[in-house]
């Protein structure tokens, strides 16, 4: 089977290790991407502490908390599906539930954006906004950029998981030989989760 050992490799174990290492390096790179945003957030917080605290108090932290719960649960489900795949069992239903939770996150996020838009604090282009201080404006700018970028990552993760769920259903992913594909998609999903775990306190609980 061509899928088993590809050209530059001599043994399946070697190929698996390489794929895993590649994923970890990619995640390190992603982490650096978001760390730039966190640095900006830190700077804003240090320079304009009272306004940032005030802005953070206005956030719908319960929606953020619900979203955190959704993502953590979906990460757990993905981890279970990955473990099963390693042992050779396909669990498309578990994966599908994880995807639903991810979609739930996006839906809640959309609701939250809508509420903020109605309150006039979401600085979308063309939106009518009213901020109590300039620094709060900057805070909301950063909030919108960071959460939108996170949502993009989340959508990519959903795409990955959906593809895998379909492959599991159709049985086109030989397990456990190619479980590395599941492992890597799972790692990516966990990173999306971890980034949210940092975004949540930075924007909602920074008081």
């Amino acid at each position: 089977m061509a899928d088993r050992v590809r050209e530059p490799y001599a043994a399946p174990g070697q190929q698996r290790e390489a794929a895993m290492m590649g994923m970890y390096i990619f995640l390190a790179s992603e982490t650096m991407l978001f760390s730039g945003l966190f640095l900006v957030a830190l700077h804003l917080r240090l320079e304009h502490a009272p306004e940032v605290v005030a802005a953070s108090r206005q956030m719908h932290y319960f929606i953020g908390a619900a979203n955190t719960a959704l993502l953590l649960t979906s990460s757990l489900l993905v981890a279970l599906a990955v473990e099963a795949a390693r042992e050779g069992r396909a669990r498309p239903a578990v994966l599908a539930t994880a995807i639903l939770l991810g979609l739930g996150f996006l839906a809640l996020k959309a609701v939250e954006y809508r509420m903020e838009y109605a309150e006039g604090i979401l600085p979308l282009p063309g939106a009518v906004t009213e901020f109590s201080s300039p620094a709060r404006h900057a805070f909301m700018n950063l909030y919108l950029i960071a959460t939108a970028l996170h949502a993009v990552h989340l959508s990519i993760g959903l795409g990955l998981l959906a593809t895998l769920a379909v492959r599991l259903l159709r049985g086109t992913l030989p397990l456990p030989e190619r479980s590395i594909v599941m492992v890597n998609a799972g790692l990516y999903w966990h990173l999306v989760d971890v980034i949210w775990i940092f975004l949540y306190p930075v924007f909602y609980l920074a008081r």
Binding site: E47, H48, P50, E51, A54, S132, S133, P134, A135
Partner: peptide, 19 residues
């Protein structure tokens, strides 16, 4: 320009920005 940033103790934060 950024009156809310450093508020003197004992005063309400009522000054608007002149930015």
């Amino acid at each position: 320009l950024l009156p809310q940033a450093q508020i003197a103790a004992g005063y309400p934060p009522i000054m608007p920005t002149f930015a």
